[in-house]
């Protein structure tokens, strides 16, 4: 049997430039993002489905959707 690696999309935050405004949290349909200690946004890789809504919304454009191998 052939083994295939599945690829999934996930959101990644460049934490050092995140301003922790919380715009991403508001648009996330999966409730996968939270603002940790008022410093940066944190994405739960388990909940994130890689839809990219947060990346579009982020005023600083510091969220990137990347493909990850599972």
């Amino acid at each position: 049997m052939k083994t295939t690696t599945r690829k999934k999309k996930k959101a990644f935050v460049s934490t050092d430039v995140c301003v922790a405004c919380g715009s991403c949290v508001k648009v996330c349909p999966m409730k996968a993002i939270e603002i940790r200690k008022g410093i940066m946004a944190e994405v739960s890789a388990e909940k994130c489905v890689g839809c990219g809504k947060c990346a579009v919304e982020c005023p600083a454009s510091v969220i990137e959707i990347r493909e990850v191998e599972l």
Binding site: V19, A20, C21, S23, K37, G38, I39, E57, C58, P59, A60, S61
Partner: peptide, 25 residues
């Protein structure tokens, strides 16, 4: 010019509260 909530990036209150949170950590 940019994204709707661009003000949030350089809002002085936002910068200040983030700084407070960093110091408090």
């Amino acid at each position: 010019l940019f994204k709707p909530r661009s003000w949030c990036v350089y809002c002085p209150m936002g910068t200040m509260t983030q700084l407070i949170c960093k110091i408090r950590k």
